[in-house]
């Protein structure tokens, strides 16, 4: 987008939307949209409270544990499916079903299996994130050029070296892409899990503020959450760009 000959960065239009938000809020037309400036003030105050900090730590903790499990298990299953036809055939359908199934329906089941606690949220994050990581890893492994593997063999690479120095590195762009998508899904998972369990971390605060019609704090929570989600996916995207140079030339 060019304006008066200058390139305007795309995300700059968000400023326009923020201004519109502020105006709508100031006009008081919709009680559920307070002015953005009030929300930001609330956000600054909010992050200093012990309640928010405790909730954020609980949330982050569930998210990180769930994601770590999802990445470990997801990459392992993806490699297995990429290298073994039998595993691919046996697991393929289920991975494809769960990657697009409404997993929110499974959360009530998790609640009775794992209790109304953090474990349920961790498992929710894991279930939301793991399938896309499996699928992308599998695609990356299957995309490793056979000549690269034959090259490794012909120079006498051990099985270990073959996997860790050639196959996994060659599939890294796809694996990272899978992890980025997994992170986005994981964030949604942690929110959905906590909302349904509703006595934990962020979910509890969301319940609290929306029930008390405390719109400033509600939106402050949302903005912090959205910003964290964008930051996280941006972080992995920049990591992806660093290996992007060889994604096209393998």
């Amino acid at each position: 987008m060019k304006l008066f000959g200058y390139r305007v960065p795309m995300m700059a239009s968000l400023i326009v939307w923020c201004a519109i938000w502020e105006l709508v809020g100031r006009s008081g037309a919709l009680f559920l949209i307070p002015p953005l400036s009030d929300v930001l003030v609330a956000a600054v105050a909010l992050v200093q409270t012990g309640t928010w900090q405790a909730a954020a730590i609980t949330t982050l903790n569930s998210f990180l544990v769930g994601m770590a499990l999802a990445i470990l298990v997801g990459v392992a299953i993806g490699v297995l499916m990429g290298r073994s036809v039998a595993a691919d055939n046996l697991l393929g359908i289920w991975v494809n079903i769960f990657v697009s199934a409404p997993l929110s329906a499974l959360v009530p089941v998790l609640m009775i299996l794992f209790g109304m606690g953090e474990t349920t949220v961790v498992v929710t994050v894991f279930l939301f994130a793991v399938w896309i990581i499996v699928l992308d890893t599998r695609a990356g492994i299957q995309g490793v050029p056979p000549s690269l593997i034959e090259m490794g063999r012909s120079y006498g690479a051990s099985r270990f070296a073959l996997y860790f120095r050639i196959i996994l590195l060659s599939a890294l762009p796809e694996i990272l892409a899978g992890i980025r998508l997994g992170v986005i899904r994981g964030v949604k998972g942690v929110v959905i899990g906590q909302l349904l369990v509703s006595i934990l971390g962020y979910g509890e605060l969301f319940e609290l503020y929306s029930r008390n019609f405390d719109m400033e704090n509600f939106w402050a929570l949302t903005i912090i959450l959205f910003a964290a989600a964008m930051l996280l996916s941006g972080l992995i995207e920049s990591l992806e760009k660093r290996v992007d140079y060889y994604a096209g030339v393998r």
Partner: peptide, 12 residues
């Protein structure tokens, strides 16, 4: 990219 589910209590 954002967890839109967070806004569901609001709609209610």
């Amino acid at each position: 990219a954002a967890p839109m589910a967070a806004l569901i209590p609001l709609i209610t």
